[in-house]
């Protein structure tokens, strides 16, 4: 108990008399906003690319509406390769690309590039799993009515899978919250940067703690929101 308090490094926690609370609030709220902003935009961009990719992975499968086995295998391999690279290494690997796209590799905008790219294959697999849960009979019914591939995707696959897709968005967002903290360590901005530079390097444990609490609240919030929206989509049908 006392050891635990000692571990918290009390002097720096209180920061002697030097803790300026208005400075702290400003720093923390800026960092929180940066994280939210990074995560939301990266999630959105990841879905812009990952959702179509996931749909393609499903419909080009053997026996599906646009069977294309070579394309399906190639995309499958690419997705797996990207998914097997640890994020911290991926961050460094995409630096040249980041520079090319945003002109630098430090800051919130720059870190959206690795965040988005890392999430795309993940999203694709989540979408694929959600869409595969749909009973083939529904697709067959739509085919029997003369539906084309686009109509089946937009009127059958995506609406029918919506509860599962919503949960996927929540999982992706939560993953990106934690990835964004990692990106923060290499200068990505947001709560990660705050925790690393002030909390870790300058021994301000209070900042470290606040960061953790905010991250926990964020993750909880996203999960609860996701669960609620998914449940609403399901309940509506009962």
């Amino acid at each position: 108990m006392f050891d635990a308090i000692a571990l918290l490094n009390l002097p720096s926690l209180v920061g002697a008399a030097s803790v300026d609370f208005s400075w702290l609030i400003e720093k923390v709220s800026l960092a929180t906003w940066e994280t939210i902003y990074m995560v939301i935009i990266s999630t959105a961009l990841a879905y812009v690319m990952g959702l179509p990719l996931g749909v393609i992975l499903v419909i080009t499968e053997k026996g599906h509406i646009l069977e294309n086995i070579p394309l399906n295998s190639i995309l499958g391999v690419i997705v797996n390769v990207f998914r097997s690279i640890p994020f911290i290494i991926f961050l460094i690997l995409v630096i040249p690309l980041t520079k090319l796209i945003v002109g630098g590799f430090i800051g919130t905008v720059a870190s959206m590039v690795p965040l988005t790219l890392a999430a795309v294959p993940f999203v694709a697999r989540l979408v694929e799993t959600s869409l595969k849960e749909i009973d083939w009979g529904l697709i067959e019914a739509a085919l029997s009515m003369g539906a084309n591939a686009w109509q089946i995707i937009t009127k059958v696959l995506l609406p029918e899978a919506s509860p599962s897709l919503i949960l996927g968005v929540a999982i992706t967002t939560i993953n990106l919250v934690s990835y964004s903290a990692m990106a923060g360590i290499v200068g990505g901005g947001g709560l990660g940067t705050l925790a690393y530079y002030y909390g870790y390097q300058r021994y301000q444990t209070l900042i470290l703690l606040i960061t953790v609490v905010i991250l926990v609240i964020m993750v909880q919030g996203v999960q609860v929101l996701g669960d609620t929206l998914a449940a609403r989509a399901v309940n509506r049908r009962r």
């Binding site: 009979g137 529904l138 067959e140 609406p159 029918e160």
Partner: peptide
């Protein structure tokens, strides 16, 4: 066509 398991869209 009608089916044994109806195949109605649950989201509609």
């Amino acid at each position: 066509m009608i089916f044994q398991h109806f195949n109605l869209l649950s989201s509609r």
